[in-house]
C-alpha cells in the first residue's frame, strides 16, 4: 500500500489552560487514511471521536489542544505537520477546505441561512482555486449534479431553508468536495437524517470517495453504518484506541471486550428474541482520573494488571490490532 495521505501519530489531546487543571481526553491516537478508502472511527458519546476529528482539521479551540504527537498531511508539495501550524494562520486556512474538508452532523446549522447554496459552494472555489464568480457558479451547479440533486441549475439559487434535510446534507457534501480535497472528514454525517435518506447519503459518500480518490474518515456511533461503509475501523473508548482492524476482521472476530460488548448489545439481525447482554455500568465521566485501562470497571475479563497500566495496541494479525492484556501478544510486547 502507498504511503498514507494523512497520518496521525501518537496524538494526545488535553483540556485545560495553563492555569486550570489539565485533563487528558484522548491519548496515543494513531490513524492513517489512504486514497479511496474509508476509515471508520466508532465509539459511544464521550469516547473522544469528535475531538479527534476536530484535531485532524486543527480546529480545536481553547481550552482544548493537541499536546503531543504529529498530524501529517501528504500533498504533492510533500508532507506537512499540521499540528504545528497556527490554527487561524494563513497556511492552515489554505489547507482547510482545499486539502482537508469536513462534513458535520447537522446540515441545518452548518449552512449559512442567508446565502444561496450556489454562493456557499462558490465561496471555496473562488477563495482556494481563484475562479471567477461566473466560473465558480458553473462549477457549483456541476457539483450539485454530482451529488445527485435534481434540477441543479435551479437549486443553486435556493436558500438552505428551501431544501429538505437530505438535500442539505448533499449540499454540504458538494461544498466539502468542491476543491477536490484529498481528505474528507465526515463527523456523524447521517445521524440527523432518516434511515432511507441516510442510506442515500452513505452510498453517495462511498461512491464519491472511490471516484475522486479521497481518503475518508467516517465518524459514527452506528455499527451498522460502519459495517456497510468502512474499509478499516478504529474503535475508541474514553480517549483510547482499543481496537483497529479491517472491517471484515472486526465483525467476524472482535477482539477487545468493549467491541464484543458493543456487538452483544445489538438486537440480533435475524430477529431472534434472545436476551441482550448489555455492558454493565456506564462510561466513567471525563472528569474522573483513570489509571490503567478505562474499560476495566465494566469489563467481564478484568485482571489486576488492567488497573495498573493501559496496554498499547499490538498486532494480532497484520490487519488487526488490539489494546488488551487478554492477548499474549500484548502482554509479551511489554515483557
Amino acid at each position: 500500500m502507498n504511503a498514507p495521505v494523512f497520518q496521525m501519530s501518537n496524538v494526545s489531546i488535553d483540556i485545560g489552560g495553563p492555569r486550570s487543571i489539565m485533563q487528558r481526553i484522548a491519548s496515543g491516537i494513531n490513524l492513517e487514511l489512504h486514497r479511496g478508502r474509508t476509515l471508520a472511527l466508532v465509539g459511544e458519546s464521550g469516547c473522544g471521536k469528535s475531538v479527534t476529528a476536530l484535531s485532524a482539521m486543527n480546529l480545536l479551540s481553547a481550552p482544548l489542544r493537541v499536546s503531543e504527537g504529529s498530524i501529517v498531511l501528504r500533498t504533492e508539495d510533500g508532507p506537512q505537520d499540521i499540528a504545528g501550524l497556527d490554527p487561524s494562520g494563513r497556511q492552515m486556512r489554505a489547507i482547510r477546505g482545499r486539502r482537508i474538508a469536513m462534513i458535520f452532523q447537522d446540515p441545518m446549522t452548518a449552512l449559512d441561512p442567508v446565502y444561496t447554496v450556489g454562493d456557499q459552494i462558490s465561496e471555496g472555489l473562488r477563495r482556494h482555486l481563484g475562479l471567477s464568480r461566473r466560473e465558480a457558479w458553473a462549477r457549483a451547479v456541476d457539483l450539485l449534479r454530482l451529488v445527485g440533486i435534481p434540477a441543479p441549475e435551479e437549486r443553486a439559487g435556493h436558500y438552505p431553508f428551501q431544501l429538505s434535510g437530505g438535500m442539505r446534507q448533499r449540499v454540504m457534501i458538494a461544498i466539502a468536495i468542491a476543491c477536490a480535497p484529498s481528505v474528507l472528514i465526515a463527523d456523524e454525517p447521517t445521524t440527523a437524517l432518516d434511515v432511507t435518506v441516510q442510506a442515500q447519503i452513505l452510498d453517495l459518500l462511498r461512491d464519491l470517495g472511490e471516484r475522486l480518490g479521497m481518503a475518508t474518515l467516517l465518524i459514527t456511533h452506528d455499527l451498522g453504518v460502519v459495517a456497510e461503509n468502512a474499509d478499516d475501523v478504529i474503535v475508541m473508548y474514553r480517549g483510547h484506541v482499543v481496537e483497529k482492524a479491517g472491517v471484515g476482521a472486526l465483525f467476524d472476530n472482535p477482539a477487545h471486550p468493549y467491541t464484543r460488548g458493543l456487538m452483544a448489545s445489538l438486537p440480533p439481525a435475524d430477529g431472534r428474541r434472545v436476551e441482550l447482554t448489555p455492558i454493565p455500568g456506564q462510561v466513567p465521566p471525563i472528569t474522573e482520573e483513570i489509571q490503567g485501562c478505562p474499560f476495566a470497571g465494566r469489563c467481564p475479563h478484568v485482571m489486576p494488571r488492567c488497573g495498573e497500566r493501559m496496554p498499547a495496541l499490538q498486532n494480532l494479525s497484520p490487519e488487526h490490532s488490539v489494546a488488551c492484556w487478554l492477548y499474549p501478544a500484548v502482554a509479551e510486547a511489554v515483557a
Binding site: 434511515v195 432511507t196 451498522g224 453504518v225 459495517a227 461503509n229 439481525a269
Partner: peptide
Amino acid sequence: LLLAAVPAPRPR
C-alpha cells in the same frame, strides 16, 4: 425499501 435501508451490523 425501509428494511433495505437499515444498515446491518454485518459487512456486506
